[in-house]
Design a protein around this nucleic acid. Structure first.
Lengths: 210, 210
DNA sequence: TCCATAACTGTACTCATGGTACGGTTTCTC
DNA sequence: GAGAAACCGTACCATGAGTACAGTTATGGA
């Protein structure tokens, strides 16, 4: 899809990356509390001492995992919404294009979306310190604000038919995605996610299209 | 709201109920893997022997928790959609009323929705046996089918404006609710849930209302 | 009122795992 | 080649799941 310029990683940074990737997959499939450091280091091929050299404790691992996750997602959104704007000057059309791109991106994931780390953390809040919880909340607020900005641009040109609160509509996208990921995973049907995004797209059309 | 006829519980059943309630709250706030039997029995005021008298192991606890959760939710939906039908003969109006009732029910929860057990389990799938996973999948399928039936009744009278797949629309409700619960918990803002349900209601109006 | 059984308690284990502490060793990197 | 970065090994403690089993108390029906 997109070739990202990876800055050359030192050996330590590469190991950290490897640990974070393995840990994320484990956390998304069994939860943070049930993810043992032992299994992570076994898969990463290093010892417990090696692990604790990189991460002070499990909470430090969680923080870095989350930072990584948020950064990756931010980048994805930047890309998708920039492409939408590049393909149409009309804000509504641009958004509809971006949503289609988002749906396609999700559909292209080989074995379905692996899960949303923020959702996972939300269902295990008591395990994390305030910093982690604040980070999740802030990233959600940022995403909502981003969508809200887009919707403002649309509503300025196309007044909504039904009286809807644009903040709620902005929130809706995250809700749909998170909810659809859960349904996809629960029913073992990866297609649910892209279908729900496309349905949200239809709702946007119904709300704003003349 | 509604007075449910509780069949008189024997002492053992009452203890089981108490354990399940405490365990559910713990699981929803810290995850299944991180919920220790010790803390559950401490809060329930009984010993480890007492616990294992009621539940063979932790997975048996999970199964019963889930059964309880699904039954409670089924009952809630039965009630809400029956009331909707009672208040209007028009299937669309009945559904809109039911959605409003659902939103109000969610708004009335004292400290926000405690969380969806199915979502929690979905993010810890590897911890559970096939029976538990099959139970979650089946309950989601049942709920989707229930909504689909309602939508069929609506679409028979009010053909949808935009070409939408009714299965997707049916799925959307669960997605919205699950997603909004996550956002409510993450942002510590209980109102998100009811607002999203009301927004879904607006979308239904936009899709079907003449 | 009695008795069988349900509903527990108490004690005493095993085993796996998270996490800590710390000294030593290898491997980069400049 | 030196110094720092990136580890390894070992030993240790606390906690939690789960087992075993004998004993005790409460309950509810005949």
């Amino acid at each position: 899809m997109s070739t990202v310029m990876e800055p050359r990683l030192s050996k330590g940074e590469a190991t950290r990356e490897r640990i974070l990737e393995i840990a994320e997959a484990a956390v998304l499939s069994k939860g943070f509390g049930a993810t043992s450091i032992e299994e992570v280091i076994a898969e990463a091929g290093l010892t417990k001492s090696g692990f604790f050299y990189h991460f002070k404790d499990k909470n430090a691992l969680a923080r870095e995992m989350l930072r990584r996750y948020v950064a990756t997602n931010d980048q994805l959104f930047d890309e998708i919404f920039a492409r939408g704007r590049a393909l149409s000057d009309d804000p509504l059309q641009a958004f509809l294009i971006s949503l289609k791109l988002l749906a396609e991106t999700m559909a292209d994931l080989p074995s379905g979306h692996p899960g949303c780390l923020i959702a996972s953390i939300c269902y295990q809040e008591r395990l994390f310190d305030r910093e982690v919880r604040e980070l999740t909340a802030q990233s959600v607020r940022d995403w909502n604000a981003r969508f809200r900005t887009i919707l403002d641009g649309i509503a300025a040109i196309y007044p909504p038919r039904e009286p809807v609160d644009l903040d709620d509509v902005a929130d809706m996208l995250s809700c749909i995605v998170d909810g659809a990921i859960i349904m996809s995973k629960t029913l073992n049907d990866p297609k649910k996610l892209e279908r729900q995004i496309m349905l949200f797209r239809s709702c946007i059309k119904l709300m704003f299209a003349p």
